[in-house]
Design a protein around this nucleic acid. Structure first.
Lengths: 329, 329
DNA sequence: CTGAAAGCGCTTACAG
DNA sequence: CTGAAAGCGCTTACAG
């Protein structure tokens, strides 16, 4: 394996010069001829700097950790895209972690804490990520950026979740519905419930407490919780489901209950995902700027790592956007 | 930040002893009293060894790269589970990479090649991973394990894909179908076409060439390619779709074409995924042992890394299993 | 049973 | 414009 030393020998210069050619330097200045000679030796050997040695010397790794509640939730694809694109732009690579596996004492958690394996951690909080784990990551010392939530202790980037739920609910109102329920995660995403209620109260529609049905996220959870909605009196004619995976389960449960969507029940899911268009009936959704969330999250992390002041904020562009499909037609 | 040196000072011993307590050693023997004293200092400081320093010294990182064609294909979830479980058991952590991003010249590729950032790479080949990239990873020097394919140049673990397709097709035959098509990826997974043909020929059923319809994987691809099937004469009454994501698109296209599933067209998808049960009609599938594929892949990688001979083989247990749902009922 | 020293490969002030 | 030396934090033969 080539090293700076072997490259230096091949080019007839000292290691300092090789390093200067590769990364630049304030102190070392090299002539054009020397630079070319070194570069040729680097190319010929296919030399790549040893990551561990560099990390040890520089006290940073160029690796960011990204922890998501559940890797298999398709709504995160655009978020991950944004993260990777911004990370590439800044020269970071990304260590993708599943919140389900980042339990206390896990290998995955250890690498985010204290071992200096990552420079910082981006976290999308959720039911699978315990407060305990968050505390441990915080104790690790590296900067943290919270995605899609505000945080008193960490840097954060938020979405207009209140607005997203408001727009989704308004869409149902505009379709003429007067009894609109909310089904989904309520604990971690309370803003969405608030937006839902605002749309209803603005239109003078009722929003009884039992119209807000708590459910975990996931197709199966949506399927299981759906009967609660059937028992309501009067029964809702439309439902906003948080999030889109849960909505898939709701569609199945509605079909099994003999309801026709959207005639007997209109359904809109929170977050956009490719499958929504390929279901029958296809699923209306409200698309949130998850790609931008990822990009901005990494930008903030980069700012934090360079020691500059970090401007935590809510993403307002693009706005949440309702995508109408068969389930609310 | 605590270091071996600071821990050694706190415990009143030399760094050698700290290292010996943490990792064991053939050469260094420590008394029980000393061990306890060191352990107390480690716990008190919350000391975690510096990853970069360890990697540099040991010339290995304890990190494995895993490259999948498309991270957002849900069929990989069980595979990833198996990978992570086995990696945890052996003390490796996993760097998850998207084949779409591991292009020539990408950061992601660089870290798998030469920089010593990972000890080895597990790859599931597919349309998104070019031969060129594979060549570069091979040139990187670390061991490679190919998942779900055989390889002349690398270690590999395969699945009984011929058998899986055979069983799925037999299921359709047993349901009384006589004109059975195959729609899906044919280039990378030719075994499946072979198994499909075997089931048909065993039953004396026709398998004209145009009954095998090539399609890329993905819901949208399945949707787009479906009309080809409608044009066949005589029109098939059943179809095996490779893979399950493509099958979701086929279901949608069939519905849009006015066909009722399974009465007008029975559909079975290759690979199991949670969404199959939550579609309406729910989708029959043939489940392959992907979890075991992941586990065995990591086991083989571990064997390769310890320098022992690697037994590349096909996983025969559990057997592929047909899960019957509404789409073939 | 324990300590002192070397070295993994790199970058960076410093000296020339 | 270039080289020699130190040191990041760790582990491991070696010496005692």
């Amino acid at each position: 394996m080539a090293t700076v030393k072997s490259i230096a020998a091949a080019a007839g210069v000292s290691p300092s010069v090789v390093s200067a050619v590769l990364h630049g330097s304030k102190h070392v200045r090299v002539s054009e001829a020397t630079r070319a000679r070194v570069q040729r030796a680097v190319d010929a050997a296919g030399y790549v700097p040893n990551h561990a040695a560099r990390a040890l010397r520089l006290q940073r790794t160029g690796v960011l950790a990204l922890v998501l509640p559940k890797l298999d939730n398709p709504v995160y694809h655009r978020l991950v895209d944004g993260i990777y694109d911004a990370a590439d732009a800044h020269g970071y690579s990304v260590l993708l972690g599943d919140g389900i596996r980042a339990t206390s004492g896990s290998l995955m958690l250890q690498r985010m804490v204290g071992g200096g394996q990552v420079d910082g951690t981006l976290i999308r909080p959720g039911a699978t990520i315990s407060e305990d784990v968050l505390t441990q990551i915080r104790a690790g010392g590296g900067p943290i950026v919270i995605l899609d939530d505000v945080s008193a202790e960490d840097h954060w980037v938020a979405l207009q979740d209140e607005l997203g739920a408001y727009l989704a609910t308004r869409h149902l109102v505009e379709k003429g519905h007067e009894r609109i329920a909310y089904l989904g995660q309520t604990r971690y995403q309370h803003d969405r419930v608030v937006g839902y209620r605002r749309a209803l109260s603005e239109s003078g529609l009722p929003a009884p407490d039992d119209y807000v049905i708590h459910s975990l996220q996931g197709t199966h959870d949506g399927y299981e919780r759906f009967p609660t909605l059937l028992d309501l009196d009067p029964r809702p004619t439309a439902v906003l489901v948080n999030n889109v995976t849960t909505a898939v389960g709701v569609l199945a449960a509605a079909t099994d209950a003999g309801l026709t969507v959207p005639d007997d029940l209109a359904v809109i899911g929170y977050h956009e995902t490719t499958i929504a268009a390929d279901l029958r009936p296809s699923l209306s959704t409200v698309e949130m700027p998850l790609y931008e969330l990822g990009r901005v999250g990494v930008d903030l992390m980069h700012t934090a790592l360079t020691g500059e002041p970090v401007d935590s904020h809510t993403i307002t562009e693009p706005l949440p956007r309702v995508i109408e499909r068969q389930s609310t037609a």
